[in-house]
């Protein structure tokens, strides 16, 4: 067992654990923004380190796995940002735990809330 195989195995374990945590976060969080937070961060690091681990195990593949890593690191934040903005414009407002709801939601000044959707934001 060479040193590259040990590093690759450790990266595989870390990556797959974070991918599992990403799925669990998507399942457990209460509203769309928190789901995005858990899903994006965990799956980005998980996918990056798993693909890098395979690149370490099979050294001929390292360049192509680097392309996949760069692409994941670039595209995941962009798609999560687009989804967050789209769902706010659509009228799914964030779940806010504390009492001062007006103060905690600064994006309200750009997209004013309408009365009808105010009730639905508990889902």
């Amino acid at each position: 067992m060479s040193i590259l195989e040990i590093i690759g195995g450790i990266l595989l374990v870390i990556g797959s654990s974070f991918l599992f945590l990403g799925g669990l976060g998507i399942f457990r969080m209460p509203d769309i923004y928190n789901r995005l937070q858990a899903g994006t961060k965990a799956t980005t690091l998980g996918g990056m380190s798993l693909v890098l681990g395979v690149g370490f195990l099979e050294t001929d593949w390292i360049w192509k796995s680097l392309i996949i890593i760069i692409f994941i690191a670039y595209s995941n934040p962009i798609s999560s940002h687009a989804l967050a903005r789209a769902s706010y414009h659509r009228g799914h407002y964030p779940y806010i735990k504390s009492k001062e709801k007006e103060k905690m939601d600064a994006y309200r000044e750009v997209v004013p809330h309408t009365k009808k959707e105010e009730k639905e934001d508990k889902a």
Binding site: S16, I26, G39, T43, G47, I72, S80, A86, H92
Partner: peptide, 18 residues
């Protein structure tokens, strides 16, 4: 909502790539 389903699909895609 539809956005929730899209997030789940995005996560499935990333796990599928890995």
């Amino acid at each position: 909502t539809a956005a929730d389903r899209t997030i789940a699909m995005d996560t499935l895609t990333t796990i599928g790539v890995a």
